[in-house]
Design a binder for these strands. Structure first.
Length: 537
DNA sequence: GTAGGATGTCATGCC
DNA sequence: ATGGCATGACATCCT
C-alpha cells in the first residue's frame, strides 16, 4: 500500500467500488478516511458483491422455474449464437435504453454489456420488447430506487402491492424475462485450459457450488418438482455450452461457467490486479441425477430437437453418436450416488482434458459397468426431460395414474413439444416396463419348461423301471402258473386212472373260482361251464 | 472383428 | 376413443 502505484490502483478500485455502490447510499467521503477504514470498506464492498452474486443466482434459478411454469420453450443460446449481434448495439439503438434504469445501473449495465458477442438476437429482441413494458419499467424503477441489494422477492412484493391486479401476473413474467436476459449474459464458455487439473479440486468446486449456503431461498421450481424425489433434487446452475466452439461443446459439454458478478461488474478495459483477483471463474462439472431437472442443457435441447426433426439417417446416427457420448459422460445416477457420479464425471473429464481425446471411451473407465450402462440408457429420457424443462420427473411421468398424470400436465402450461415429449416418455416408460416384464415372463416360462422337461424325464425313467419290474414279475408269475398247470395236469386222472393229455385238454378258471377241465377242441370262450364239462376241480 | 446377451424402442393387436 | 398391456422384431450397447 506504500507503493505509489499500488496506492493509485487501490484508490482506483475504491472509485470503482464507490461508483457501483452509489445507489446503495455510500458517500464518496467514506473512502477518504484512514487506511483501515478503506480496507473495511473494501471488505464490505466485497460482501455486497457476494450478496449481489447470490441475488443474481436466485434470479437465474427463479427464471428457470418460472420458465417451467409458463411452459415457454426458450431458444437455446447455443443454437442461435452463430448469428449473434452485439447486444449493446441493439440496446443502444433504442431510445428507451438510453434512459433505462438498467443501463444506468452500474451493475446491470455491466451485466448487460460485458458479453456482447454472447447475446443471441432472439433474446435481445425479447429484452427490447420487455423493456417497453410499463410494468417492467416500474420494476426497474423499484430496483433502481431500492438498490440492487434488495432481494428480488421483496422487489416483486413491492411491485405487486403497487400494481393493479390484472397486471401483476404479466409483470412478474416480464421481470423474469429481463432477468433471464441478464442471466444469459453471464454465460460464457470457458476454455478447457482454465479447468482445474486435479479431480479432487474439481469435485470440491462442484460440491462448493452446489451446496452454497447463501442461496437457501426456496424457489417456485421446488414446488413444481415436488413430485420428484426430494432427496435427489439439486438446484443446479444453468449449463451453457458455447456453440461458437462446436468442438468444445461436443467434447466438453459439462464445462459449466458460473462466472461471478464481479467479473461482469467490471467495465471493459479495467484490468487492475485487485479487480482481476475478483474474477474467480468456477468450472463445475455438472452431475445430473434423476431429478436434477433444473439445469438446462442447451446441447441436449438441440440434440433432441434435431433428433426429433432429423430425417436423414446419417444425421440421426451422428446425433445419436454425439448424444451417446454425451450421455456416457453423464452419471445420471438413479440411486443418488452423487459422489460416485461426480467422480465418474471427474474421471471422464480429466481423461478428456489430459489426453485431448474428444471421444470418451467407455471401456477405458472402470466405472463403466453394466450398471452404468443401464443407468445411461434409462436416463436418456431424463436428459430429454431436463432439456425440455418438463415440470414432472420422469418417474412421475411414467408411474402416475392416468387421472393424476392428466391433472398434472393439465395444471402446467406445456407447449406442443413438451406435451409430445411427456407423452412419449410415458409411453416409452410404460413399454419399457412392459418389455422387461414380458422378458421376465418369457424367461420364467423357459425356466418352467426346463423344469417340466426335467420332471418328465424323471417320470419317464421311473416308468421304465416300473415296466421292467412289472415285466420281470409277469415272467415269474407266468413261470409259476406254468408249473402249477403242469402239476395240476400231472395229478389229474380219469375214471380209468389214466392221466389227461395236456394237448387234448386244458384247464379253465371260472369267475366263481371253479376250475374246469375242458377238451381243447370245445373250449368255451365265455369261461362259463358247459354241458360237456366232464367235471369240476 | 465378431458373437451373443441385455436392453430400449417401435409397431401391432388385444382388452 | 383412449390408455394400458403383451409381444415380436429390430437396433444399440457392451462384454
Amino acid at each position: 500500500m506504500d507503493d505509489p502505484s499500488a496506492q493509485f490502483q487501490h484508490e482506483d478500485l475504491i472509485d470503482i467500488l464507490w461508483r457501483q455502490d452509489v445507489d446503495l447510499g455510500v458517500k464518496r467521503e467514506i473512502f477518504d478516511g484512514c487506511l483501515r477504514q478503506r480496507e473495511e470498506e473494501i471488505t464490505r464492498a466485497r460482501e455486497r458483491e457476494l450478496k449481489r452474486e447470490r441475488e443474481l443466482k436466485r434470479i437465474m434459478q427463479r427464471i428457470q422455474k418460472l420458465d417451467k411454469e409458463t411452459g415457454e420453450f426458450l431458444p437455446s443460446p447455443s443454437s442461435v449464437n452463430s448469428q449473434a449481434v452485439p447486444f449493446s448495439e441493439t440496446l443502444h439503438s433504442t431510445e428507451f435504453t438510453q434512459r433505462s434504469p438498467v443501463t444506468q445501473n452500474p451493475l446491470l449495465s455491466a451485466l448487460l454489456f460485458s458479453q456482447k458477442s454472447q447475446k443471441p438476437p432472439s433474446q435481445e429482441q425479447a429484452f427490447s420488447e420487455l423493456l417497453s413494458l410499463p410494468d417492467l419499467q416500474y420494476y426497474l424503477d423499484v430496483l433502481e430506487s431500492e438498490g440492487s441489494s434488495l432481494p428480488l422477492e421483496e422487489i416483486t412484493e413491492i411491485c405487486h402491492q403497487n400494481l393493479p391486479e390484472p397486471q401483476r401476473e404479466n409483470s412478474t413474467d416480464a421481470l423474469c424475462g429481463v432477468t433471464q436476459t441478464i442471466s444469459d449474459s453471464f454465460e460464457v464458455a470457458q476454455p478447457l485450459s482454465c479447468m482445474p487439473s486435479d479431480p479432487i479440486e474439481i469435485l470440491e468446486t462442484c460440491i462448493q457450488t452446489f451446496s452454497d449456503p447463501g442461496n437457501p431461498t426456496p424457489s417456485p421450481s421446488n414446488t413444481i418438482y415436488s413430485c420428484s424425489t426430494p432427496e435427489n433434487q439439486v438446484i443446479l446452475p444453468k449449463c451453457h455450452i458455447n456453440s461458437s466452439d462446436s468442438t468444445l461443446s461436443e467434447f466438453c459439454p459439462y464445462t459449466i461457467n458460473t462466472s461471478k458478478p464481479e467479473q461482469l461488474n467490471s467495465a471493459p478495459g479495467r484490468d487492475a490486479p485487485q479487480t482481476l483477483l475478483q474474477f474467480e471463474e468456477r468450472h463445475v462439472l455438472l452431475g445430473f441425477d434423476d431429478s436434477a431437472s433444473v439445469g438446462s442443457v442447451d446441447l441436449e435441447t438441440s440434440l433432441y430437437a434435431a433428433d426429433t426433426l432429423s430425417n436423414g439417417q446419417s444425421d440421426k446416427d451422428e446425433l445419436e453418436s454425439i448424444q451417446s457420448d454425451y450421455t456416457d459422460l453423464l452419471p445420471l445416477s438413479l440411486h443418488s450416488d452423487a459422489v460416485d457420479a461426480t467422480l465418474y464425471e471427474t474421471s471422464a473429464q480429466h481423461q478428456t482434458q489430459n489426453e485431448s481425446t474428444p471421444k470418451y471411451s467407455p471401456q477405458a473407465n472402470p466405472l463403466t459397468t453394466s450398471r452404468a450402462a443401464g443407468v445411461r440408457r434409462v436416463c436418456r429420457d431424463e436428459q430429454r426431460a431436463q432439456a425440455m424443462s418438463l415440470p414432472l420427473s420422469v418417474h412421475d411421468i411414467i408411474n402416475l395414474p392416468v387421472e393424476a398424470f392428466n391433472e398434472a400436465i393439465g395444471s402446467c402450461k406445456l407447449n406442443n413439444a413438451q406435451h409430445s415429449l411427456i407423452r412419449d416418455i410415458r409411453r416409452r416408460g410404460k413399454n419399457k416396463m412392459a418389455a422387461q416384464s414380458c422378458r421376465k415372463r418369457k424367461l420364467d416360462g423357459l425356466f418352467d419348461l426346463e423344469d417340466e422337461i426335467e420332471g418328465l424325464k424323471r417320470e419317464k425313467e421311473q416308468i421304465k423301471e416300473e415296466n421292467k419290474r412289472n415285466a420281470r414279475e409277469l415272467q415269474e408269475t407266468k413261470e409259476k402258473l406254468r408249473k402249477l398247470y403242469n402239476e395240476v395236469f400231472r395229478q389229474l386222472r380219469d375214471e380209468h386212472g389214466n392221466s389227461y393229455n395236456p394237448r387234448e385238454y386244458k384247464l379253465q378258471h371260472s369267475t366263481d373260482g371253479t376250475v374246469y377241465l375242458l377238451p381243447r377242441g370245445t373250449a368255451n370262450k365265455t369261461n362259463t361251464p358247459t354241458e360237456d364239462l366232464p367235471f369240476a376241480l
